[in-house]
Each structure stands twice: as structure tokens, then as C-alpha cells.
């Protein structure tokens, strides 16, 4: 292991430990919002594998988040599945969805890929509205009380307890960061970067670019789906908005703000943006205006985002 990689690993572990310790000092309200930020951060981290590292801009990643939300929530609501089973099932279904959508979408490139992912996600969103008897449509469904607490490996886990939810979120975030770290530091990281930088050249060096892109797409979609499943289970609510265009844009926004192509960027972006939106909504109802302005400003003056800029200027070892 190189010195840079060691530093990077220590930094990431330190951040995770810090997040774990924070629960003992911050208010209950902050614990709640930080839980939400972390879950959305996981979602954006999944998006970032595809966009930040592999250079593919999906405008429909909410379809995977939504797939996770519904694949976890519907079996619990309709069939009374246990929470862990539903969670694993949702991850599996997101994986399947990502493979199928990836095989289709990756036949297109650039502009067409962006429009196609946008349209497929829109079709998914409309499908949720269409089957509103089962899905609850845009009103959504609240998970039954019985699913708010369950036994797992001899432990009783109470999902109405804020600290429990927080720790589950930290755990899932840790899994996401560690898995991404191993992936990005290994040979796939090099390959993804190569594809982002120069796809034609990478193919002419003997790489199967399409398979590599599909792999990235699948990992990305599965992580996004896991975040969706976690959201449904932790907060006990599922609704069509989670699959809507706004969530796709948020993943993009968090990633751009925090720094595309850095492991902690999406989390940082999620924390900053959510805080900003909270503050703004106290002052104005038009926070979407700021969302738009921030998107434009980022592309114009700050395309690498916060951590991307820091990486470029000061910490080249950052992953």
C-alpha cells in the first residue's frame, strides 16, 4: 500500500468514526437530519461511481433509488415481510434493475445516454403513479407499525429510536465508503478513470469498455437502490417523489457540490445542500431558485466541487 493510499484510508476511517461519535454530542433534531443526509449521501455516492469516476452522466438515477424504496416497502406493506429480508430483497432487485437498464442504456452515448436515462426514470415514476392502488401513488404509503421494530441476530432493533436509525445509517455509509474505496483503489478504479478520460484510447489498449461501463453502472445502481431501501425502512414511508426527476437532480447536485470523483464529496454535498435548503426554506419558499442558481454557478466556476478542488490544489492523494 502506498503512502498516499494509507493517508486516504486513514482520512476516510476518521470521518466515519467522527460521524459515529457525533451522535453523543448533537441534538435529537440534528441526529434526525444527519441520518437523512447520510442516506442521501449513500445515494449520491452510488451516482458518483458512475458519474464522477466513470464519466457517465445519468439523469435518471432516482429510478434506482425508487426501485430500492419500493422493493423494500411494498413487500413489508403488502406481505408483511420482515425488515432484513425486505432490505436484502430490495438490494437484489436494484441490482437486477441496474443490469437490465444498463444493458439497454449503455447502447447509447453522451447526449442520448442522458436523455435515455431521464426518460426511463420518467417511465418508472409514471408507472408508480399508474399502479397507485398498490403503490399509494404520490400520496405514498406509511409502513405498518409492526415493521418499525424487529429482531435481528438476537438483537431487538427499534426503528422509531433516532439513535438506532442513526447507527444503521452510519453502518451502511461505512459499507458504501469501504466498498467504493476498495473498488476505486483497485484495477477497476484505474479502468473507470481511463474510460472517463479517453474512452477510445482505452478500448485500443485492449479493454472491454462496454463491460466495464456496465459493471460501473451496476455497482452505481445497486448502491443507489440500497440507499432507497434504507430510506424506506428507516423512515417508514414510501412515495412516488423518491423516484421523481428531482431526486435524480439532487444526486447530481450533491455530487457536483461536494466534488465528483471523490469518495466523500457526495456526502459532503448532501450535508451542505440539505442544510442550505433547511435554512433557505425558513426565509423563502423559492429554494428551487437557489438550487438552479447553484447548479449554474457550480458548472461555471466550480466544476470540480469542494473536495475536487482541494484534491487538485493540495491533497493529490485523496480518493
Amino acid at each position: 500500500m502506498g503512502a498516499g493510499m494509507m493517508k486516504s484510508l486513514i482520512l476516510h476511517l476518521a470521518v466515519l468514526v467522527l460521524l459515529f461519535l457525533l451522535q453523543f454530542v448533537i441534538s435529537d433534531y440534528a441526529i434526525l437530519t444527519l441520518t437523512r443526509m447520510m442516506v442521501l449521501g449513500i445515494f449520491a455516492s452510488g451516482f458518483n461511481i458512475l458519474f464522477g469516476y466513470t464519466g457517465l452522466l445519468s439523469l435518471g438515477h432516482a429510478m434506482f433509488f425508487g426501485a430500492g424504496v419500493y422493493a423494500a416497502g411494498l413487500p413489508i406493506y403488502h406481505f408483511g415481510w420482515s425488515v432484513p429480508l425486505a432490505f436484502v430483497f430490495a438490494i437484489f432487485m436494484s441490482f437486477v434493475a441496474a443490469v437490465i437498464i444498463g444493458v439497454i442504456a449503455l447502447r447509447t452515448v453522451r447526449d442520448s445516454f442522458m436523455i435515455l436515462t431521464l426518460m426511463l426514470a420518467q417511465a418508472g415514476y409514471l408507472a408508480i403513479l399508474y399502479f397507485n392502488r398498490e403503490t399509494g401513488g404520490s400520496e405514498g404509503l406509511t409502513m405498518p407499525q409492526a415493521s418499525r421494530s424487529f429482531d435481528f441476530l438476537g438483537l431487538t432493533i427499534d426503528l422509531t429510536d433516532a439513535a438506532t436509525r442513526y447507527n444503521i445509517a452510519v453502518l451502511l455509509l461505512a459499507i458504501t465508503i469501504v466498498v467504493s474505496f476498495i473498488l476505486i483503489q483497485g484495477r477497476y478504479g484505474r479502468l473507470f478513470n481511463a474510460i472517463r478520460e479517453n474512452e477510445a484510447r482505452t478500448e485500443m489498449l485492449g479493454y472491454n469498455v462496454l463491460t466495464a461501463k456496465l459493471f460501473s453502472f451496476t455497482v452505481s445502481g445497486t448502491i443507489a437502490g440500497m440507499a432507497g431501501a434504507a430510506y424506506a425502512i428507516l423512515f417508514g414511508y414510501i412515495g412516488a417523489t423518491f423516484a421523481g426527476i428531482q431526486y435524480s437532480i439532487e444526486a447530481l447536485l450533491f455530487t457536483l457540490l461536494g466534488g465528483a470523483g471523490t469518495l466523500l464529496g457526495p456526502l459532503l454535498g448532501s450535508i451542505l445542500m440539505t442544510t442550505l435548503i433547511d435554512r433557505l426554506s425558513e426565509v423563502t419558499s423559492a429554494y428551487f431558485l437557489f438550487l438552479g442558481l447553484i447548479l449554474i454557478a457550480l458548472t461555471l466556476w466550480f466544476p470540480k466541487g469542494l473536495l475536487g478542488t482541494i484534491k487538485e490544489k493540495w491533497l493529490p492523494w485523496l480518493t
Binding site: R190, E197, E203, L205
Partner: peptide, 27 residues
């Protein structure tokens, strides 16, 4: 496809220099 031919031993260098400009030389 091209990548399979590369794997069989046909390497091609581009007429218009086609390298990873933002990466270090060794990378």
C-alpha cells in the same frame, strides 16, 4: 471488436496523439 484484437496482439498507436492528457505520464 477492436479490444479483442488488441488482446490477440495487435496494438495501434494513433495518428493524432491520443493519450490521457490529465494523467501523469507513468499512469
Amino acid at each position: 471488436p477492436a479490444y479483442k484484437r488488441v488482446r490477440r496482439g495487435i496494438a495501434y498507436t494513433f495518428q493524432i496523439t491520443n493519450i490521457y492528457k490529465d494523467f501523469p505520464v507513468i499512469e
